[in-house]
Computed example of a mutant assay.
Amino acid sequence: MLKQQPLLQEKQSTVQNANCVVMVPPKEFAFNAETAKDNEFQHQVSQSTNEVRIAAMQQFNDMVASLRKAGVQVVEFNYPAGKVETPDAVFPNNWFSTTANGELYTFPMACTNRQHEVKTDALVEALQSSGRLVSSQDTLTEYLEQDAFLESTGVMVKDHINKTVYAALSQRCDREVLEDYAQRIGYDRVVSFQTALPSGKPIYHTNVMMAIGESFCVICDEVIPEFERRFVIKSLAKDKQVISISLEQMNNFCGNILQLETINGEKVIAMSQSAFDAFSPAQRAQLSSHGKLLPFNVKTIENIGGGSVRCMLGEVFLPSRHKQL
């Protein structure tokens, strides 16, 4: 049966957008000093931990309700608490990914306290309870022994239609692990590149600087060295409308957006209110031609966690027994 999967994958690989997402409630949310070492988007605040969690939970609940109202299936993964708190668990897209063949992959994350977010058995149970089929599992966590990391769709932005993975190399995105994963899922091309912020540090996650939809992409190309930038843009522009954003817009999470589909096949684009406000009217009009814009206020999560709406959405491409919200 496993030998037949590549044929099924070939048939279904043209699906760019998921119509189902996993979201994790921020019940242990807090400023994570461990991730802040290379995440310049995080900020400490004077509010108490309890105040932060109340605000984050309200923003999370509002986002879940709005996505469901729009017609996107949301699997709330209210994960079992462990001995170690997981302040970044609200960003599940960093530790797992799924395929239309029913495969679930788990990944090696760079920060020790984030490695405790990986709760595969509980996630499989939640997915299957929601009517999604997990037929096989694979993991790249053995790379932890080599101090090599790959933080799933945080560091990989996938063009499923063209079987291409785009990735900004960093401590959290090891080239060897990246190429191993691409080979496992049968993707033909890996476009990896360097980045540099004004501080000189690389982008910690590719998905804060770029997003790929079915026929568009958003990218902060100014952080890519010029000799690589031309190649990346040329590759994207073959069949995508390229929407370039500035460094300031990237800092407002304009790159951290995600095109999804409703259960009726309608296109929507999830983003934060910060990102929506930072896009120019012309850019909002361009994006609107690719789907209804769904802005969410996740300011607390953005400011303290250093990630936005896209980071909060773990795409589910798994086969479905039935349609369910």
Rank of each mutant, 00 (worst) to 15 (best):
A33H: 10
E34G: 08
E34I: 15
E34H: 14
E34V: 15
T35F: 06
T35S: 15
A36S: 14
D38E: 14
D38S: 15
N39Y: 13
Q42K: 06
H43S: 14
H43Y: 14
Q44F: 06
V45Q: 01
V45P: 00
V45G: 03
V45D: 06
Q47D: 14
S48Y: 09
S48E: 09
S48K: 07
E51C: 09
V52M: 03
I54P: 00
A55Y: 04
F60C: 02
F60H: 03
N61F: 07
N61A: 04
N61Q: 11
A65L: 11
R68M: 07
R68F: 10
K69T: 04
Q73R: 06
V74L: 02
V75S: 00
E76S: 02
E76R: 01
E76Q: 06
A81W: 08
A81Y: 11
G82K: 15
V84H: 02
V84D: 03
E85R: 04
P87D: 02
P87I: 06
P92L: 03
P92N: 02
N94I: 11
F96C: 08
F96K: 07
S97I: 00
S97W: 06
T99S: 08
T99C: 07
G102K: 09
L104Q: 13
F107G: 05
P108T: 08
P108V: 08
M109E: 04
T112V: 12
R114S: 02
Q115M: 13
T120A: 12
T120K: 14
A122Y: 14
A122P: 07
V124I: 15
E125F: 07
L127I: 14
Q128P: 12
Q128I: 12
S129W: 08
G131Y: 05
G131M: 02
G131V: 03
G131N: 06
G131I: 04
R132T: 13
L133N: 11
V134A: 04
S136Y: 15
S136Q: 12
Q137E: 07
D138N: 11
T139P: 03
L140G: 02
L140H: 04
L144N: 05
L144R: 10
D147E: 15
A148Q: 15
A148M: 13
F149V: 13
S152V: 02
S152P: 02
T153P: 06
G154H: 06
M156W: 00
D159V: 08
I161E: 10
I161H: 13
